[in-house]
């Protein structure tokens, strides 16, 4: 479970995150939805310990998150923006490196890698260098790498960016499978359809603040619209109006 309260972070004069609070429970897929520059990535980076919050706190399974708190990171699997693989290493080697840094080794690790290669249908590509991989393959390897230590919680930053339809479908299948296994999945997106198709809970962020949250049904009701897209636009619109007044 991921729990965030009153999170704030500024870079110089830019307040990237002003006040973000939400809970992403186990066994559910939670989507962070918002326009570009809303503070989604910064919120996630505060969660996985790349940044220290100025105010508020983020907790993973009750453990405080931050650069100095390695324990919280044990409970996390992270797919950051753009996967970030090592091009000279094979897919397996990429996954193995992270497994080893999580303290795994030997037959346990190799068995786990086999499982992940099968689950993500990487096939023969698993033994090739990731240099020439398609974006879809890269994301798959990134997810396998994030899952190698079987974390309870999974954070994905814009995982569908640059993926084709087939790759997106298979990614959804993977995430649904993980939800069924009781994982807590938190992912960010600026694509409405993505969130509508996959999420149990939606947290809408704009200007570094949470402006609405709930199930897609609750959000539609709150905005008095029939589709989530209309709700999103309406809720965002009222926020901008508020800021302007």
């Amino acid at each position: 479970m991921i729990h965030v309260t009153g999170l704030a972070k500024r870079f110089g004069t830019v307040e990237a995150v002003r006040d973000v609070s939400f809970t992403a429970p186990d066994g559910r897929i939670t989507g962070l939805l918002g326009p570009n520059g809303a503070g989604k990535s910064t919120t996630l980076r505060l969660l996985y310990g790349a940044l220290t919050p100025d105010r508020g706190e983020a907790r993973v399974d009750g453990l405080l998150a931050g650069p100095e708190h390695t324990e919280a990171r044990r409970q996390l699997g992270v797919l950051p923006h753009g996967a970030g693989l090592y091009p000279h290493l094979t897919a397996r080697e990429n996954i193995r490196y992270f497994g080893e840094l999580h303290g795994m080794s030997g037959a346990t690790l190799e068995k786990r890698i086999d499982e992940l290669v099968a689950m993500l249908e990487l096939g023969e590509a698993a033994n090739r260098k990731t240099q020439g991989f398609s974006q879809g393959q890269k994301v798959k390897v990134g997810i396998a790498r994030a899952l190698v230590h079987s974390p309870r919680n999974l954070i994905l930053d814009e995982p569908t960016n640059g993926l084709d339809v087939m790759a997106i479908r298979s990614l959804r299948e993977v995430l649904r499978g993980l939800r069924a296994a009781g994982h807590c999945i938190l992912f960010s997106s600026h694509v409405m359809q993505e969130v509508a198709a996959l999420c149990d809970d939606v947290v809408i962020i704009a200007g570094g603040r949470v402006i609405a949250s709930g199930t897609p049904e609750q959000l539609r009701e709150q905005a008095g619209t029939t589709t989530l897209e209309d709700a999103f636009v309406k809720l965002l619109g009222s926020e901008t109006a508020e800021v302007q007044s």
């Binding site: 996985y48 310990g49 992270v78 950051p80 840094l101």
Partner: peptide, 11 residues
């Protein structure tokens, strides 16, 4: 390459 970000997310 963007691989530093996942690296620092490790314990």
């Amino acid at each position: 390459r963007g691989s530093l970000e996942p690296l620092v997310s490790l314990p």
